[in-house]
Nucleic acid binder design. Structure first.
Lengths: 221, 221
DNA sequence: CAATAAATTTAGGTGTGTCTAAAAATATTG
DNA sequence: CAATATTTTTAGACACACCTAAATTTATTG
């Protein structure tokens, strides 16, 4: 039996709060790959700790303290991902699971030292912003899904909406990576797929779904 | 309830095998701070996995596979300790507990990358040798307990026999650290305490117990 | 070598996070 | 707005590592 940590519950609630105002047990169960009954049970414990507010049948919300723990965990996760990629030279596709374990180790002091060692990175290897020691981040970037880019525009790859191993490996085979500059050559009518041009002049097509999961900065039009 | 991992059991058996040929449940229970009944129960599971040979009432022994896992875990533990001290600038007195958690993360690939990143260190921050990827180490050093050093001899601090936080912090207050060169000035008759002289000429006394837990290389006599 | 002491194992129980199935509450829809 | 569908909760079990206490085996000693 794979047991899910309290911190992972809090992190999942944090992420779901970003999208919908109320977080349902169903959504949590799906995200954490567990059963609604288990979610209910754990929410009671989190509420007892004062980390969430939970009203029966009404959904769940992080308290200030709960959000703090969730953000600290997210920070640790993303810092460790930077470590694994920048220092140990792993690919962005393989670091998530290790970071999922590393994020539970040590407290603020360890995290802050790691942060300093890494040079206070602002983004993780998937382009996600890293909260600072106070749980804040400033994301000055104005990113859009690649699927929104008009033909003729030049874009910079800055993030992904899907950090799953499978998707990232697909990007690897396409030679798509963070920082890459691409030209959107054409959009297909029938399936919304995009034809892209690489700096070396090579062209290739990505599906609409792939484009939806790619976050880009518009460089020029 | 603090649960003890299988790897920690194997590591503990490995260390106890170094001292006595048979490893008793009692010794394991003491080292792991648990109860003999819990040890018996876990030994059955380890035996089922094929990691130890356990004959009821007769003690336990690592199998080849078990020893491999124990050595790999020890390797990871010590490499992470090097990381925490060398890269994150923590003191040798605080890194053990974190390494105790870090050692369970990732497999060979992660460990080997960490090893390479750290420059293939041969010893951890407490002077303990780090097994290589094959579980071997060569310790060309000929270390003795500082308590054995004769007055007049010059010694180099190379290790400790007690890596507990308390003892290491005691060494910190005495300004004793790995690599330090000391002169053994005098031994007290009545309690076997040692008077040492630091490079700056300062002298201080350490107890016999402290000297027993300090491993030194004899530099000259 | 029998009596006693010590170590080990077994028996039975606890706490925690999970599960399935049934009951209860809320949402949806004809 | 009543019937139906969906979501959530409760009830009851299971797995796991732990515990205490009792039974068993091994070791020590007079």
């Amino acid at each position: 039996m794979q047991t899910i940590s309290r911190e992972n519950y809090l992190k999942a609630i944090l992420k779901l709060e970003g999208r919908a105002d109320i977080v349902s047990n169903q959504a949590l169960a799906d995200k954490l790959e567990t059963k609604p009954a288990s979610v209910t049970s754990m929410l009671h414990k989190l509420a007892d700790e004062g980390w969430v507010k939970h009203e029966a049948y009404k959904g769940v919300q992080l308290t200030g303290e709960g959000k703090g723990i969730a953000l600290a965990t997210l920070r640790k996760h993303r810092l460790w991902e930077v470590f694994l990629v920048e220092k140990l030279n792993f690919g962005w596709d393989v670091v998530h699971q290790w970071a999922e374990e590393l994020e539970h180790i040590g407290g603020e002091e360890l995290t802050n030292r790691l942060d300093a060692f890494l040079g206070h990175p602002a983004f993780d290897p998937h382009g996600d912003p890293i909260p600072n020691a106070l749980g804040k981040w400033k994301d000055g970037r104005n990113l859009v899904q690649a699927s929104q880019a008009e033909p003729g525009s030049v874009v910079l790859i800055k993030g992904v909406l899907n950090s799953g191993e499978e998707f990232l490996q697909h990007l690897n085979t396409m030679h798509i990576q963070l920082g890459l500059q691409l030209i959107v050559v054409q959009r297909y009518e029938f399936d919304d797929g995009l034809v892209l041009e690489w700096p070396d002049g090579r062209q290739a097509t990505i599906s609409h779904e792939t484009a939806q999961n790619l976050l880009v900065e518009m460089k020029q039009n």
